[in-house]
């Protein structure tokens, strides 16, 4: 009962504070709620960070990486680590809500389903970006490659956004399935393949210190994928949430 009141409180304050765009205000309140929950539990970020770090160590040992091959393999390894850690981070976003019953609370509130989806995409994006921003310098340091270039930021941002757009929708899909933790990667990884391809290529270009002009087409492609996946997610999310408050 206590946790329920904590969950609902920011929604009401946000709606009174921003009457102009109610939907945006509610979505923002939901993001704040997710951030607050994550600050207390530290599940998504901590788990995915440690997982990504372990993956990098395993890659290095298993592949016995030297400097030459790292230039070619680095971007791929980085994104494999990000994507697998991301699946781990996303996997529990709706499971926790469902088990605690707080999803029902959100759905009873007069919030547009699209706003619930958008909020969850944003909060997942935030958590994964925190993890990735912590992994990036470690990757550059451990593997001794010059990855800390400002242009890596839009690549990571756009790649992770596309991943979260599909991942949020799918983690809601599997939340009530029997084999939920095992099912998410099976569904999600093939579908986000285009995003991974684009992100790896763009990261490789950044690593080779190519001019911005060569990077732009890939960034545009990633942005287009993100737009498509977000549009599909907004349209279909209401069908996933339907009936789950019962």
């Amino acid at each position: 009962m206590k946790s329920l009141s904590v969950d609902i409180a920011p929604i009401s304050t946000a709606t009174t504070r921003r009457p102009r765009n109610a939907s945006l205000g509610k979505a923002w309140a939901l993001v704040l709620k997710d951030v607050r929950v994550e600050m207390r539990r530290r599940e998504a970020v901590a788990n995915s960070f440690v997982f990504a770090l372990i993956a990098l160590v395993i890659f290095n040992i298993a592949l016995d990486l030297e400097r030459q091959r790292l230039e070619a393999l680095g971007p791929g390894l980085l994104w494999v680590a990000f994507v697998f850690a991301g699946v781990l981070g996303l996997g529990r976003t709706f499971v926790g809500e469902k088990d605690r019953g707080s999803l029902g609370g959100i759905l009873v509130a007069p919030v547009d389903r699209g706003a619930v989806y958008a909020a969850r995409v944003v909060s997942s994006l935030l958590f994964l970006l925190v993890m990735e921003m912590a992994i990036l310098p470690l990757f550059a340091l451990l593997f001794n490659i010059p990855l800390l270039h400002p242009l890596i930021l839009p690549v990571v941002l756009l790649g992770t956004l596309g991943f979260c757009a599909v991942g949020t929708l799918f983690s809601a899909l599997v939340a009530s399935a029997r084999t939920r933790e095992a099912l998410l990667p099976v569904l999600l990884l093939p579908v986000v393949l285009p995003v991974v391809v684009g992100s790896v290529e763009a990261t490789a270009l950044v690593l080779q210190e190519k001019p911005v002009g060569e990077l732009l087409p890939w960034l545009g492609l990633l942005a287009a994928f993100d737009a498509i996946f977000l549009a599909v997610g907004v349209l279909l999310f209401e069908f996933v949430l339907e009936g789950s408050d019962a």
Partner: peptide, 18 residues
Amino acid sequence: AIEDPTQQARFAAVFGIV
């Protein structure tokens, strides 16, 4: 993996479209 028939139909439809 989804037991409830209508939920199964709905979720599968969403996934089938994506």
